[in-house]
Design a binder for these strands. Sequence first.
DNA 1: ATAGGTTGGGTAAACGTTTACCATCATTTT
DNA 2: AAAATGATGGTAAACGTTTACCCAACCTAT
Lengths: 333, 333
Amino acid sequence: MATIQDVARQAGVSIATVSRVLNNSAHKVNLETRDRVLKTVKELDYRPNALARSLQLKKTMTIGIIIPDISNHYYAEIVRGIQNVADQKGYNIILQNTERKPDRIVKSIYLLREKIVDGIIFSGGIIHGYEPLSALNELKDRVVVIGRHEVNFPAVVVDNIGGAALATQHLIDLKHTRIGFIGGPQNSTTGIDRLTGYKSTLAQNGYPYDECLVRRGNLTPKSGYQAAARLLSEKDRPSAIFAANDQMAFGTIYAAREMGLRVPEDLAVVGFDNVPLSSYFVPSLSTVEIPMNSLGAAAMDLLINLMANHNFSRMKWFKTRLIARESTAPKKN
Amino acid sequence: MATIQDVARQAGVSIATVSRVLNNSAHKVNLETRDRVLKTVKELDYRPNALARSLQLKKTMTIGIIIPDISNHYYAEIVRGIQNVADQKGYNIILQNTERKPDRIVKSIYLLREKIVDGIIFSGGIIHGYEPLSALNELKDRVVVIGRHEVNFPAVVVDNIGGAALATQHLIDLKHTRIGFIGGPQNSTTGIDRLTGYKSTLAQNGYPYDECLVRRGNLTPKSGYQAAARLLSEKDRPSAIFAANDQMAFGTIYAAREMGLRVPEDLAVVGFDNVPLSSYFVPSLSTVEIPMNSLGAAAMDLLINLMANHNFSRMKWFKTRLIARESTAPKKN
DNA sequence: ATAGGTTGGGTAAACGTTTACCATCATTTT
DNA sequence: AAAATGATGGTAAACGTTTACCCAACCTAT
């Protein structure tokens, strides 16, 4: 591949001149020379070596993203949101998929640090004060987290508690008294918050919190199916289930049908995330919408701002919205 | 951040020695000195600057992935497959999401070239001989494509034609005579191949190919819903529909139900991809399984081999498998 | 004792950029 | 006419590594 040397030689100028032309330097260069350089660049199909450039400038125009699971629609959308604004601003991204494994999280952080990313967006899905996160400290001032992690970085946060409250209240309003909950992984703040919202709404309405009505899944339809199957075979089964994400809600509906229960007549179901499929499931799924794409975009905006100014608004909150569909259609009288 | 200079100074050795220790160089270094260096490295939390290292070695241990849509489960799984083996072999990845836009594809290729990736895995979802792909030529010998693109690179390919044939034949075996098809974007080889498999199977069984039975979607549930709605409101509506991916099949089932048709009694439906949800949809979806994860892994293996040896097996094929579920349950007699 | 190896370590070039600094002319200004 | 200014372009240092090459000291076998 051609280097700046090659261009300089062929155009009969010094490498400094070539560099000046290519970077629209304030240092003037004769129009004629300029054209000659540009022509040569085109001829040789020259593209600057970003490695050398970054080494010199101490800036890579690359940011790292750390997420648990790219095949989860929730994270996929976040990444899209990030990439959209990254593209616009000339940044590109290195993606790290951790599968929630602590060693992979740490490895990712170190890797990104070595690769000299300008900044990192971390959406870990892990518990507060989690040890591995300390590896991020070296990068202070260049890290944005998505979701609530009790670490001292600027953050973009979804009101998961409020969203879960919305869902739970919705079921209560429909006169359900025994409401089951299928949560996510126990070490994820998202999971914890959604459980919190569920609990506190029960309390607010004067309902007891019954451990027997709570199960945990790993966010897949299968785990939702399994949890629901257990929940529904209890002697005093719930008349409604709130699942911590849509995928598990789908599994729940499947389980209900398998047991001969009709949704929503015999069992009301609410999910969380509003994945594109939720409105086309049979029956369509009531759920809580999160503006995931905006979430990613906001994180990237925040990061860019942070890297440029080093002063920033510490947090940006995103509200959720309940979308009622067939899976919680009111009982006909 | 500490540099190799800092370590050398503090350990009282030259940078050459530090480098030797860190790279387990064949050039021997005294055990005592070695320990001293290692201790200093730990103290300073030194990590080599990958930029400088790569510049020197002309090797970045980074590969680029170009895909159309990360939020599509199909591609998400491919990425996971790639990342798994990449992790094992010490490579990391830069992800480019093109959304099938030609300008973004070209931009991505140039970007990756500048960033000096060691290799590229391209899964474009675009038509044969497509112009922008010529930008990849500069990277000859370091590119693997996923899917059939008529370009001269080693490839990992899924037998989409065979898979579509499997699905179509399945419906024919169930005595369906009017079988609808909902295809994908017209400029994707995947879409073209699945249509080809459908057509040729019809022909083999002596059925006519009826344009009226073919619609196109963009792989989302919504587009499947819309296409199916049109298809099912024709005067002589099909008794079965084969959708080019599961998402559109879901939309199809929703449309059928909305029109008062039961699945599978009034309409049989087959999808393609076997996304995790397909077995938990209501009714569960018959579909064609692709080993997506293995596909990604194979692509990465191929690329690593390619970069190391420059000789390679030009293609690796993956077979598909039909999974019959409720959405095509045979009519009860 | 001496040639020849082995061990351990340092020096400096190279990777491909950007840019501070200097040099040369031509043009203005006083 | 001397001096200052502006336009244009080159030289070389610097970014942080790796490694070829050189060198010193010590062994070992004649």
